[in-house]
Amino acid sequence: MQDLLYFGQQLINGLTIGSTYALIAIGYTMVYGIIGMINFAHGEIYMIGAYTALITITGLATLGVTWLPVILLIALICAMIVSSSMGWAVERVAYRPVRGRHRLIPLISAIGMSIFLQNYVHLAQGSRNIGFPALIEGGFQFGSSGNFQMSISWIQIVIFVTTFVCMTALSLYISRSRIGRACRAVSQDLGMANLLGIDTNRIISATFVIGAALAAVAGLLLGMYYGSVDPLFGFIAGLKAFTAAVLGGIGSIPGAMLGGLILGIAESMTSGYLSGEYKDVVSFGLLILILLFKPTGLLGKPEVEKI
């Protein structure tokens, strides 16, 4: 019984972390789906989202705002605005000028952007870990055996629900709205979409902005869940989310969700049953296996050569 509860608890831990990987992975997968490039500055955008949320929360606290939903809502909106404009700016500065050149060029300029943003936050906010207030505390326990209780905290529930809502909303937006339809057209054939009168520059900007907004949501949630932020916070998370996107099939939105959850569960089970030391070995080992046996990822479509 206790073993079962232990497994259940590790599953909850894995699902929580996996959902946030999925939220960040969306940014990678959408940009790749549309322009076939990887936005390496995305992890930094997520980090900036977390910092903006923290600054907003601190600001509101000094102004005397105490009602939690208002604080969270304002923090979320501010983080999304700042991150989205960063996403937009990254596209304008690092991608648009070199679009259509050799594939390596935008890759390098994105890495440059990532280093720049990381160091900018280093300078502006200091390099130390900053504590993030735990706004949503408590939780409830279910099932106990011996001295082990399985528990789920409110913040974990908030993370699941938010991720689920964001994913559903995004899928609906992409499949139903005008911009969504244009996005799909651009991802199928950029040149043709352009000829048909779609403002492709606007659509590409929109993908960066949507991805960045979701990363900001993840930034706020994870900041509260973990309890601290630092300027290097986005790097590892970005790498993991990128792995999740590739695992699920880069370019596919349900794939990002699936990849994130698989990665999160694999990590928590490894730390739970083997040792925390092997966590990263397993997650990146999984990536290598997928790339060897199913290079398009779990839900990715096999690429059709365009003639």
């Binding site: 590790q10 831990n13 929580t16 994870l222 590892i236 998370a237 739970g272 925390g276 030391e277």
Partner: peptide, 14 residues
């Protein structure tokens, strides 16, 4: 061992 720079210790705590 854990990984320095990691943020998620929920599995370790469990």
């Amino acid at each position: 061992g854990i990984t320095a720079g990691d943020k998620d210790f929920s599995s370790l705590v469990t």
